[in-house]
């Protein structure tokens, strides 16, 4: 059973079997506005928490999405290459950004659950 976590930077992680699927929250996509391009990561890239994993581009600006924990990229959402607006229409579903193999599951303890995130965005 997957468990979902949230970060201060408005990302979500759905973790199952040591693999996290990562995306941005509905709140974040609303702030960014209509996305027109997503620069996806290379599979196999090793990232430390805070490294830029993906760049999402709206009509107006480019924004970094950071690795929420340490790990290695195992998959990227290729559907976003042809339809980046999936992030707007389904931020927590079909608009996921990448999957990563967690280096240290202990880092998850520092993240928020659904109730804490809702309180965070007010």
């Amino acid at each position: 059973m997957a468990k979902t976590y949230f970060t201060q930077d408005h990302e979500w992680l759905s973790v199952e079997g040591g693999i996290a699927t990562v995306g941005i929250t509905d709140y974040a996509q609303e702030q960014l506005g209509d996305l027109v391009f997503v620069e996806l990561p290379q599979i196999g890239t090793k990232l430390s928490k805070g490294d830029t994993a993906v760049v999402v581009e709206s009509v107006k600006a480019a924004s970094d999405v950071y690795a929420p924990v340490d790990g290695e990229i195992t998959d990227a959402n290729g559907a976003l290459s042809s339809d980046p607006s999936l992030v707007n229409s389904a931020a927590t579903g079909d608009g996921w950004l990448w999957k990563m193999k967690l280096a240290d599951e202990g880092q998850l303890a520092g993240l928020m659950d659904d109730a804490a995130y809702k309180a965070h965005i007010g």
């Binding site: 027109v36 391009f37 620069e39 581009e57 600006a61 480019a62 290459s81 980046p84």
Partner: peptide
């Protein structure tokens, strides 16, 4: 300037 592909150049 017209960038090739979908990626904006800013």
């Amino acid at each position: 300037l017209k960038p090739e592909g979908r990626q904006p150049v800013r």
